[in-house]
Design a protein around this nucleic acid. Structure first.
Length: 174
DNA sequence: CCCTAGCGGTGCT
DNA sequence: AGCACCGCTAGGG
């Protein structure tokens, strides 16, 4: 029997994100449609501010934490607290990568190769990139803080515009 | 700048 | 087992 899931939108100055919760925590965070600053993205700013009404109390508490954390992160400030994360959708390797990402502090960066090295798998830089792309909770699990070698921007599944925006908000130069 | 070879994890056949 | 993806990287025009 699969635990019930809840999807709750989050209105931010950069558009409407969507938080998804499993029985054990935040299991996904979706970017607003389109690139930052774009029309479809801007439109989602004023879209329905449907709330956590009807969700279990635990989910409502998690969500309150998620909202604060997301607004902080989008402003380039380190969140005071994160909700419990349910990253069980990932393989062992992916979860290990996401663990390293979560320890990169606001305003700092690593390269894909450095993350691989930190995992004791030098040479797995490319696989690290794939694992970053599979991160279900972007922004809060800061996959945007991983750059290519030589401080080049590298890629970003959610669209490079978001990666640039998040790094600029943290005053990261690249 | 480009191109190439080599790389590791993942998912599909 | 094989194979085709990839948010990579170092090396060489």
């Amino acid at each position: 029997m699969i635990p019930e899931r809840y999807s709750i939108p989050i209105a931010t100055p950069d558009g409407q994100f969507l938080a998804r919760y499993s029985g054990t925590g935040l299991c996904a965070l979706d970017f607003p449609p389109g690139q930052p600053g774009t029309l479809s993205c801007r439109a989602s700013r004023e879209a329905s501010s449907a709330s956590a009404q009807g969700a279990p109390p635990a989910v409502q508490r998690w969500h309150a934490t998620t909202v604060k954390a997301l607004l902080d992160a989008l402003a380039g400030r380190p969140p005071v607290a994160l909700p419990p994360l349910d990253l069980s959708c990932g393989t062992a390797f992916q979860q290990a990568v996401w663990g390293v990402l979560s320890r990169i502090r606001c305003g700092e960066t690593l390269s894909y190769g450095e993350v691989a090295y930190a995992l004791g798998r030098p040479g797995a830089g490319r696989a690290v990139g794939s694992a970053c792309g599979a991160n279900p909770v972007p922004v809060l699990v800061p996959c945007h803080r991983v750059l290519a070698a030589g401080r080049k921007l590298g890629g970003f599944s959610g669209g490079l515009g978001w990666k640039r925006l998040l790094l600029e908000r943290e005053n990261v130069r690249f």
